[in-house]
Nucleic acid binder design. Sequence first.
DNA 1: TGTATCGCATACACTCCTGTATCGAATACG
DNA 2: CGTATTCGATACAGGAGTGTATGCGATACA
Lengths: 206, 206
Amino acid sequence: MTGVSTRRAATRDRLVEAAIAVFAEKGVLGASVEEICEAAGFTRGAFYSNFEHKDALCEAVLDALLADNLLAMNEALAAADALADADLGALIPSVIQVFLDSQRGGRTWALAAQELRLYAAREPALAAAYRAFHHRATTMFGTIMVEALHAHGYELTTDTADAISVLHAVHEYGTIGALIGSDAIDGDVKLRMLVKVLHAFIRPLT
Amino acid sequence: MTGVSTRRAATRDRLVEAAIAVFAEKGVLGASVEEICEAAGFTRGAFYSNFEHKDALCEAVLDALLADNLLAMNEALAAADALADADLGALIPSVIQVFLDSQRGGRTWALAAQELRLYAAREPALAAAYRAFHHRATTMFGTIMVEALHAHGYELTTDTADAISVLHAVHEYGTIGALIGSDAIDGDVKLRMLVKVLHAFIRPLT
DNA sequence: TGTATCGCATACACTCCTGTATCGAATACG
DNA sequence: CGTATTCGATACAGGAGTGTATGCGATACA
Protein backbone atom coordinates (compact mmCIF):
# COMPACT_ATOMS: atom_id res chain seq x y z
CA MET A 1 0.00 0.00 0.00
CA THR A 2 2.82 2.37 0.79
CA GLY A 3 4.40 1.73 -2.58
CA VAL A 4 1.21 2.70 -4.31
CA SER A 5 0.80 5.97 -2.49
CA THR A 6 4.48 6.69 -2.95
CA ARG A 7 4.08 6.51 -6.67
CA ARG A 8 1.07 8.79 -6.54
CA ALA A 9 2.94 11.32 -4.45
CA ALA A 10 5.81 11.26 -6.90
CA THR A 11 3.61 12.07 -9.87
CA ARG A 12 1.93 14.81 -7.89
CA ASP A 13 5.33 16.30 -7.17
CA ARG A 14 6.33 16.12 -10.80
CA LEU A 15 3.10 17.82 -11.80
CA VAL A 16 3.65 20.54 -9.23
CA GLU A 17 7.17 21.24 -10.43
CA ALA A 18 6.05 21.30 -14.03
CA ALA A 19 3.22 23.63 -13.11
CA ILE A 20 5.66 26.06 -11.55
CA ALA A 21 7.69 26.12 -14.72
CA VAL A 22 4.68 26.61 -16.98
CA PHE A 23 3.05 29.16 -14.69
CA ALA A 24 6.27 31.15 -14.80
CA GLU A 25 6.27 31.04 -18.57
CA LYS A 26 2.61 31.52 -19.39
CA GLY A 27 0.82 32.69 -16.30
CA VAL A 28 -1.73 30.66 -14.38
CA LEU A 29 -4.62 31.20 -16.76
CA GLY A 30 -2.38 31.09 -19.80
CA ALA A 31 -1.03 27.68 -18.81
CA SER A 32 -3.05 24.85 -20.25
CA VAL A 33 -3.46 21.65 -18.30
CA GLU A 34 -2.15 19.84 -21.32
CA GLU A 35 1.04 21.88 -21.35
CA ILE A 36 1.69 21.24 -17.69
CA CYS A 37 1.19 17.52 -18.12
CA GLU A 38 3.46 17.41 -21.12
CA ALA A 39 6.16 19.28 -19.22
CA ALA A 40 5.86 16.70 -16.45
CA GLY A 41 6.00 13.83 -18.93
CA PHE A 42 2.40 12.74 -18.37
CA THR A 43 -0.88 13.03 -20.18
CA ARG A 44 -3.97 14.70 -18.83
CA GLY A 45 -5.16 11.41 -17.46
CA ALA A 46 -2.56 11.71 -14.74
CA PHE A 47 -3.65 15.21 -13.93
CA TYR A 48 -7.37 14.58 -13.58
CA SER A 49 -6.60 11.51 -11.57
CA ASN A 50 -4.62 13.57 -9.05
CA PHE A 51 -6.29 16.96 -8.97
CA GLU A 52 -9.88 18.02 -9.30
CA HIS A 53 -9.29 21.51 -10.68
CA LYS A 54 -6.35 23.58 -11.72
CA ASP A 55 -7.00 25.46 -8.50
CA ALA A 56 -6.20 22.36 -6.49
CA LEU A 57 -2.89 22.19 -8.29
CA CYS A 58 -2.30 25.83 -7.44
CA GLU A 59 -2.71 25.10 -3.76
CA ALA A 60 -0.15 22.34 -4.00
CA VAL A 61 2.19 24.77 -5.73
CA LEU A 62 1.81 27.22 -2.87
CA ASP A 63 2.82 24.52 -0.43
CA ALA A 64 5.93 23.82 -2.46
CA LEU A 65 6.84 27.49 -2.61
CA LEU A 66 6.41 27.88 1.12
CA ALA A 67 8.64 24.92 1.83
CA ASP A 68 11.26 26.37 -0.48
CA ASN A 69 11.18 29.78 1.17
CA LEU A 70 11.59 28.31 4.61
CA LEU A 71 14.50 26.24 3.40
CA ALA A 72 16.21 29.28 1.94
CA MET A 73 15.61 31.14 5.17
CA ASN A 74 17.31 28.38 7.13
CA GLU A 75 20.33 28.51 4.88
CA ALA A 76 20.48 32.25 5.37
CA LEU A 77 20.31 31.77 9.11
CA ALA A 78 23.12 29.28 9.05
CA ALA A 79 25.18 31.84 7.20
CA ALA A 80 24.26 34.42 9.80
CA ASP A 81 25.45 32.17 12.59
CA ALA A 82 28.70 31.54 10.79
CA LEU A 83 29.26 35.27 10.59
CA ALA A 84 27.92 35.97 14.04
CA ASP A 85 30.88 38.06 15.12
CA ALA A 86 30.78 40.41 12.14
CA ASP A 87 29.11 43.76 12.67
CA LEU A 88 25.58 44.18 11.45
CA GLY A 89 26.45 46.43 8.54
CA ALA A 90 28.52 43.69 6.94
CA LEU A 91 26.26 40.89 8.09
CA ILE A 92 23.03 42.08 6.53
CA PRO A 93 24.08 42.07 2.87
CA SER A 94 25.71 38.68 3.27
CA VAL A 95 22.68 37.11 4.83
CA ILE A 96 20.33 38.58 2.27
CA GLN A 97 22.58 37.40 -0.52
CA VAL A 98 22.64 33.89 0.85
CA PHE A 99 18.88 33.92 1.09
CA LEU A 100 18.52 35.09 -2.49
CA ASP A 101 21.00 32.51 -3.75
CA SER A 102 19.36 29.72 -1.80
CA GLN A 103 15.96 30.11 -3.35
CA ARG A 104 15.45 27.08 -5.45
CA GLY A 105 14.50 27.60 -9.05
CA GLY A 106 15.51 31.24 -8.99
CA ARG A 107 13.85 33.15 -11.76
CA THR A 108 11.26 30.50 -12.45
CA TRP A 109 9.97 30.15 -8.93
CA ALA A 110 9.91 33.88 -8.38
CA LEU A 111 7.79 34.39 -11.48
CA ALA A 112 5.46 31.59 -10.53
CA ALA A 113 5.01 33.01 -7.05
CA GLN A 114 3.95 36.35 -8.43
CA GLU A 115 1.64 34.78 -10.95
CA LEU A 116 -0.07 32.99 -8.10
CA ARG A 117 -0.33 36.20 -6.11
CA LEU A 118 -2.12 37.87 -8.99
CA TYR A 119 -4.29 34.86 -9.60
CA ALA A 120 -5.28 34.73 -5.94
CA ALA A 121 -6.27 38.39 -6.11
CA ARG A 122 -8.96 37.50 -8.65
CA GLU A 123 -9.95 34.02 -7.60
CA PRO A 124 -11.60 33.94 -4.19
CA ALA A 125 -11.15 30.18 -4.08
CA LEU A 126 -7.38 30.61 -4.03
CA ALA A 127 -7.36 33.75 -1.94
CA ALA A 128 -7.93 31.75 1.23
CA ALA A 129 -5.06 29.42 0.41
CA TYR A 130 -2.83 32.35 -0.37
CA ARG A 131 -3.72 34.06 2.87
CA ALA A 132 -2.69 30.95 4.75
CA PHE A 133 0.56 30.75 2.79
CA HIS A 134 1.30 34.42 3.36
CA HIS A 135 0.47 34.28 7.02
CA ARG A 136 2.67 31.29 7.71
CA ALA A 137 5.57 32.66 5.71
CA THR A 138 5.31 36.09 7.29
CA THR A 139 5.12 34.94 10.87
CA MET A 140 7.97 32.47 10.49
CA PHE A 141 10.17 34.99 8.74
CA GLY A 142 9.24 37.61 11.29
CA THR A 143 10.05 35.49 14.28
CA ILE A 144 13.37 34.45 12.89
CA MET A 145 14.35 37.96 11.91
CA VAL A 146 13.41 39.49 15.23
CA GLU A 147 15.46 36.89 17.05
CA ALA A 148 18.44 37.36 14.79
CA LEU A 149 18.34 41.12 15.17
CA HIS A 150 17.98 40.80 18.91
CA ALA A 151 21.01 38.59 19.09
CA HIS A 152 22.98 41.42 17.53
CA GLY A 153 21.50 44.07 19.77
CA TYR A 154 18.98 45.48 17.32
CA GLU A 155 15.22 45.65 17.00
CA LEU A 156 12.68 46.66 14.37
CA THR A 157 11.37 50.18 14.44
CA THR A 158 8.02 49.06 13.12
CA ASP A 159 5.50 46.28 13.25
CA THR A 160 7.16 43.00 12.34
CA ALA A 161 4.59 41.97 9.75
CA ASP A 162 4.82 45.35 8.06
CA ALA A 163 8.57 45.14 7.86
CA ILE A 164 8.45 41.65 6.37
CA SER A 165 5.84 42.73 3.88
CA VAL A 166 7.91 45.66 2.70
CA LEU A 167 10.93 43.43 2.31
CA HIS A 168 8.87 40.88 0.42
CA ALA A 169 7.48 43.60 -1.82
CA VAL A 170 10.93 44.90 -2.68
CA HIS A 171 12.21 41.39 -3.18
CA GLU A 172 9.53 40.50 -5.71
CA TYR A 173 9.60 43.84 -7.43
CA GLY A 174 13.35 43.70 -7.77
CA THR A 175 13.28 40.19 -9.16
CA ILE A 176 10.97 41.20 -11.98
CA GLY A 177 12.87 44.41 -12.53
CA ALA A 178 16.08 42.49 -12.98
CA LEU A 179 14.42 40.17 -15.50
CA ILE A 180 13.04 43.06 -17.49
CA GLY A 181 16.47 44.57 -17.42
CA SER A 182 15.12 47.93 -16.45
CA ASP A 183 17.90 50.47 -16.57
CA ALA A 184 16.99 51.30 -12.99
CA ILE A 185 17.00 47.79 -11.52
CA ASP A 186 19.41 44.91 -11.82
CA GLY A 187 20.41 42.23 -9.40
CA ASP A 188 22.77 44.45 -7.47
CA VAL A 189 20.24 47.23 -7.23
CA LYS A 190 17.78 44.78 -5.78
CA LEU A 191 20.19 43.71 -3.07
CA ARG A 192 21.02 47.34 -2.37
CA MET A 193 17.35 48.24 -2.03
CA LEU A 194 16.72 45.39 0.37
CA VAL A 195 19.67 46.41 2.49
CA LYS A 196 18.50 50.01 2.58
CA VAL A 197 15.00 49.08 3.57
CA LEU A 198 16.22 46.81 6.30
CA HIS A 199 18.58 49.43 7.66
CA ALA A 200 15.79 51.97 7.60
CA PHE A 201 13.64 49.70 9.72
CA ILE A 202 16.04 48.74 12.52
CA ARG A 203 17.67 50.51 15.45
CA PRO A 204 19.86 49.51 18.39
CA LEU A 205 17.99 47.99 21.29
CA THR A 206 16.82 50.65 23.69
CA MET B 1 -9.64 62.94 -43.42
CA THR B 2 -9.50 64.01 -39.82
CA GLY B 3 -12.88 62.45 -39.15
CA VAL B 4 -11.64 59.12 -40.35
CA SER B 5 -8.55 59.07 -38.21
CA THR B 6 -10.60 60.29 -35.29
CA ARG B 7 -12.83 57.29 -35.57
CA ARG B 8 -9.86 55.00 -35.79
CA ALA B 9 -8.31 56.54 -32.70
CA ALA B 10 -11.57 56.09 -30.83
CA THR B 11 -11.79 52.39 -31.57
CA ARG B 12 -8.15 51.99 -30.60
CA ASP B 13 -8.92 53.65 -27.29
CA ARG B 14 -11.90 51.43 -26.70
CA LEU B 15 -9.81 48.36 -27.46
CA VAL B 16 -7.11 49.54 -25.08
CA GLU B 17 -9.57 50.12 -22.25
CA ALA B 18 -11.18 46.76 -22.86
CA ALA B 19 -7.76 45.10 -22.90
CA ILE B 20 -6.97 46.58 -19.50
CA ALA B 21 -10.15 45.13 -18.09
CA VAL B 22 -9.58 41.70 -19.59
CA PHE B 23 -5.88 41.62 -18.72
CA ALA B 24 -6.82 42.38 -15.13
CA GLU B 25 -9.28 39.52 -15.11
CA LYS B 26 -7.41 36.85 -17.09
CA GLY B 27 -3.82 37.89 -17.41
CA VAL B 28 -2.14 38.88 -20.64
CA LEU B 29 -1.70 35.39 -22.02
CA GLY B 30 -5.01 34.23 -20.62
CA ALA B 31 -6.86 37.00 -22.40
CA SER B 32 -8.04 35.98 -25.86
CA VAL B 33 -8.18 38.54 -28.60
CA GLU B 34 -11.79 37.62 -29.09
CA GLU B 35 -12.62 38.37 -25.47
CA ILE B 36 -11.00 41.78 -25.63
CA CYS B 37 -12.87 42.67 -28.80
CA GLU B 38 -16.16 41.53 -27.34
CA ALA B 39 -15.56 43.61 -24.21
CA ALA B 40 -14.93 46.62 -26.44
CA GLY B 41 -18.03 45.93 -28.51
CA PHE B 42 -16.13 44.97 -31.66
CA THR B 43 -15.26 41.83 -33.53
CA ARG B 44 -11.75 40.66 -34.26
CA GLY B 45 -11.89 42.42 -37.58
CA ALA B 46 -11.48 45.70 -35.75
CA PHE B 47 -8.56 44.38 -33.77
CA TYR B 48 -6.49 43.02 -36.63
CA SER B 49 -7.21 46.19 -38.55
CA ASN B 50 -5.72 48.31 -35.74
CA PHE B 51 -2.98 46.18 -34.23
CA GLU B 52 -0.57 43.74 -35.69
CA HIS B 53 -0.01 41.59 -32.62
CA LYS B 54 -1.35 41.43 -29.11
CA ASP B 55 2.04 42.84 -28.15
CA ALA B 56 1.28 46.03 -30.07
CA LEU B 57 -1.86 46.35 -28.03
CA CYS B 58 0.17 45.86 -24.87
CA GLU B 59 2.39 48.78 -25.77
CA ALA B 60 -0.66 50.97 -26.25
CA VAL B 61 -1.88 49.83 -22.85
CA LEU B 62 1.41 50.88 -21.27
CA ASP B 63 1.00 54.34 -22.75
CA ALA B 64 -2.46 54.62 -21.25
CA LEU B 65 -1.21 53.49 -17.85
CA LEU B 66 1.62 56.00 -17.90
CA ALA B 67 -0.74 58.84 -18.76
CA ASP B 68 -2.98 57.80 -15.91
CA ASN B 69 -0.17 57.70 -13.40
CA LEU B 70 1.05 61.14 -14.35
CA LEU B 71 -2.46 62.48 -14.05
CA ALA B 72 -2.83 61.01 -10.57
CA MET B 73 0.52 62.47 -9.62
CA ASN B 74 -0.61 65.92 -10.71
CA GLU B 75 -3.73 65.65 -8.61
CA ALA B 76 -1.63 64.65 -5.66
CA LEU B 77 0.63 67.63 -6.24
CA ALA B 78 -2.32 69.99 -6.35
CA ALA B 79 -3.39 68.58 -3.01
CA ALA B 80 0.12 69.10 -1.70
CA ASP B 81 0.06 72.73 -2.74
CA ALA B 82 -3.28 73.23 -1.08
CA LEU B 83 -1.84 71.89 2.15
CA ALA B 84 1.51 73.59 1.74
CA ASP B 85 1.54 75.08 5.22
CA ALA B 86 0.90 71.81 7.02
CA ASP B 87 3.91 70.06 8.51
CA LEU B 88 5.39 67.19 6.59
CA GLY B 89 4.17 64.51 8.96
CA ALA B 90 0.57 65.39 8.22
CA LEU B 91 1.17 66.23 4.59
CA ILE B 92 2.66 62.95 3.48
CA PRO B 93 -0.29 60.67 4.25
CA SER B 94 -2.71 63.13 2.68
CA VAL B 95 -0.77 63.42 -0.51
CA ILE B 96 -0.30 59.68 -0.82
CA GLN B 97 -3.98 59.12 -0.20
CA VAL B 98 -4.93 61.60 -2.91
CA PHE B 99 -2.58 59.86 -5.30
CA LEU B 100 -4.07 56.48 -4.53
CA ASP B 101 -7.61 57.76 -4.89
CA SER B 102 -6.85 59.53 -8.14
CA GLN B 103 -5.66 56.48 -9.97
CA ARG B 104 -8.23 55.79 -12.59
CA GLY B 105 -9.71 52.34 -12.73
CA GLY B 106 -8.47 51.46 -9.28
CA ARG B 107 -8.31 47.74 -8.80
CA THR B 108 -8.57 46.95 -12.48
CA TRP B 109 -5.73 49.16 -13.67
CA ALA B 110 -3.48 48.09 -10.85
CA LEU B 111 -3.97 44.44 -11.74
CA ALA B 112 -3.41 45.09 -15.41
CA ALA B 113 -0.22 46.99 -14.69
CA GLN B 114 1.21 44.07 -12.77
CA GLU B 115 0.15 41.59 -15.39
CA LEU B 116 2.06 43.63 -17.93
CA ARG B 117 5.10 43.77 -15.67
CA LEU B 118 5.16 40.01 -15.46
CA TYR B 119 4.52 39.63 -19.14
CA ALA B 120 7.36 41.99 -19.97
CA ALA B 121 9.66 39.93 -17.78
CA ARG B 122 9.17 36.96 -20.14
CA GLU B 123 8.64 38.67 -23.45
CA PRO B 124 11.75 40.49 -24.68
CA ALA B 125 9.65 42.29 -27.27
CA LEU B 126 7.70 44.04 -24.55
CA ALA B 127 10.60 44.42 -22.16
CA ALA B 128 11.95 47.36 -24.13
CA ALA B 129 8.60 49.10 -24.08
CA TYR B 130 8.28 48.46 -20.37
CA ARG B 131 11.73 49.83 -19.72
CA ALA B 132 10.76 53.03 -21.48
CA PHE B 133 7.54 53.21 -19.51
CA HIS B 134 9.32 52.58 -16.23
CA HIS B 135 12.07 55.04 -16.96
CA ARG B 136 9.73 57.85 -17.86
CA ALA B 137 7.46 57.25 -14.91
CA THR B 138 10.36 56.97 -12.48
CA THR B 139 12.18 60.09 -13.59
CA MET B 140 9.03 62.20 -13.64
CA PHE B 141 7.91 60.97 -10.25
CA GLY B 142 11.41 61.41 -8.90
CA THR B 143 11.79 64.97 -10.11
CA ILE B 144 8.45 65.99 -8.74
CA MET B 145 9.03 64.33 -5.40
CA VAL B 146 12.48 65.79 -4.91
CA GLU B 147 11.15 69.26 -5.62
CA ALA B 148 8.19 68.85 -3.32
CA LEU B 149 10.41 67.60 -0.49
CA HIS B 150 12.86 70.40 -1.07
CA ALA B 151 10.07 72.95 -0.82
CA HIS B 152 9.38 71.63 2.65
CA GLY B 153 13.01 71.56 3.66
CA TYR B 154 13.61 67.84 3.19
CA GLU B 155 15.67 65.65 0.94
CA LEU B 156 15.97 61.95 0.13
CA THR B 157 18.57 59.93 2.01
CA THR B 158 19.08 57.68 -0.95
CA ASP B 159 19.22 57.60 -4.72
CA THR B 160 16.02 59.04 -6.15
CA ALA B 161 15.33 56.17 -8.51
CA ASP B 162 15.83 53.65 -5.73
CA ALA B 163 13.40 55.46 -3.49
CA ILE B 164 10.77 55.64 -6.21
CA SER B 165 11.24 51.97 -6.98
CA VAL B 166 10.78 50.97 -3.37
CA LEU B 167 7.63 53.08 -3.12
CA HIS B 168 6.33 51.60 -6.35
CA ALA B 169 7.09 48.10 -5.10
CA VAL B 170 5.19 48.66 -1.88
CA HIS B 171 2.35 50.30 -3.73
CA GLU B 172 1.84 47.37 -6.07
CA TYR B 173 2.38 44.75 -3.41
CA GLY B 174 -0.08 46.46 -1.11
CA THR B 175 -2.69 46.73 -3.82
CA ILE B 176 -2.66 43.02 -4.45
CA GLY B 177 -2.50 42.28 -0.75
CA ALA B 178 -5.63 44.32 -0.16
CA LEU B 179 -7.42 42.47 -2.94
CA ILE B 180 -6.46 39.10 -1.57
CA GLY B 181 -7.62 40.29 1.80
CA SER B 182 -4.53 39.03 3.49
CA ASP B 183 -4.91 39.34 7.23
CA ALA B 184 -1.67 41.31 7.18
CA ILE B 185 -2.52 43.82 4.46
CA ASP B 186 -5.56 45.93 3.81
CA GLY B 187 -5.96 49.36 2.34
CA ASP B 188 -4.95 51.15 5.52
CA VAL B 189 -1.93 48.96 6.00
CA LYS B 190 -0.82 49.79 2.50
CA LEU B 191 -1.02 53.52 3.17
CA ARG B 192 0.79 53.03 6.45
CA MET B 193 3.58 51.07 4.77
CA LEU B 194 4.05 53.73 2.12
CA VAL B 195 4.21 56.45 4.76
CA LYS B 196 6.75 54.50 6.76
CA VAL B 197 8.94 53.86 3.77
CA LEU B 198 8.85 57.47 2.74
CA HIS B 199 9.67 58.67 6.23
CA ALA B 200 12.52 56.22 6.40
CA PHE B 201 14.00 57.66 3.21
CA ILE B 202 13.91 61.39 3.94
CA ARG B 203 15.74 63.77 6.28
CA PRO B 204 15.83 67.54 6.83
CA LEU B 205 18.01 69.41 4.40
CA THR B 206 21.57 69.63 5.60
C1' DT C 1 0.36 -17.57 -8.96
C1' DG C 2 -3.92 -15.74 -9.49
C1' DT C 3 -6.78 -11.80 -9.02
C1' DA C 4 -8.31 -7.32 -7.36
C1' DT C 5 -7.14 -2.69 -7.42
C1' DC C 6 -4.56 1.20 -8.63
C1' DG C 7 -2.58 4.66 -11.71
C1' DC C 8 -1.96 6.59 -15.86
C1' DA C 9 -2.85 6.48 -21.05
C1' DT C 10 -6.09 6.67 -24.81
C1' DA C 11 -10.29 7.82 -27.28
C1' DC C 12 -14.10 10.78 -27.97
C1' DA C 13 -17.18 14.67 -28.49
C1' DC C 14 -17.19 19.24 -27.81
C1' DT C 15 -16.01 24.33 -27.37
C1' DC C 16 -13.14 28.09 -28.16
C1' DC C 17 -9.56 30.69 -30.46
C1' DT C 18 -6.65 32.07 -34.39
C1' DG C 19 -5.49 34.65 -38.69
C1' DT C 20 -6.79 35.72 -43.25
C1' DA C 21 -9.62 36.85 -47.02
C1' DT C 22 -13.63 38.98 -48.48
C1' DC C 23 -17.65 41.91 -48.10
C1' DG C 24 -20.63 45.86 -47.08
C1' DA C 25 -21.74 50.22 -44.80
C1' DA C 26 -20.29 54.72 -43.59
C1' DT C 27 -17.64 58.71 -44.50
C1' DA C 28 -14.84 62.02 -47.17
C1' DC C 29 -14.27 64.54 -51.12
C1' DG C 30 -14.58 66.38 -55.82
C1' DC D 1 -24.62 63.78 -55.62
C1' DG D 2 -21.76 60.31 -57.00
C1' DT D 3 -17.65 57.88 -56.33
C1' DA D 4 -13.52 56.36 -53.82
C1' DT D 5 -11.76 54.92 -49.74
C1' DT D 6 -11.71 53.61 -45.15
C1' DC D 7 -13.02 50.69 -41.37
C1' DG D 8 -14.94 47.12 -39.22
C1' DA D 9 -18.04 42.78 -39.79
C1' DT D 10 -18.49 38.20 -41.60
C1' DA D 11 -17.04 33.80 -43.42
C1' DC D 12 -13.86 30.09 -43.43
C1' DA D 13 -10.45 26.55 -42.48
C1' DG D 14 -7.81 24.84 -39.15
C1' DG D 15 -5.59 24.09 -34.54
C1' DA D 16 -5.66 23.48 -29.66
C1' DG D 17 -7.63 22.63 -25.17
C1' DT D 18 -11.36 20.58 -22.10
C1' DG D 19 -13.39 16.95 -19.25
C1' DT D 20 -15.12 12.32 -19.25
C1' DA D 21 -15.36 7.54 -20.08
C1' DT D 22 -12.95 3.60 -20.91
C1' DG D 23 -8.87 0.57 -21.44
C1' DC D 24 -4.64 -1.66 -19.98
C1' DG D 25 -0.32 -2.59 -17.65
C1' DA D 26 1.71 -2.70 -13.06
C1' DT D 27 1.56 -3.44 -8.23
C1' DA D 28 -0.22 -5.49 -3.85
C1' DC D 29 -1.98 -9.20 -1.48
C1' DA D 30 -3.88 -13.81 -0.40
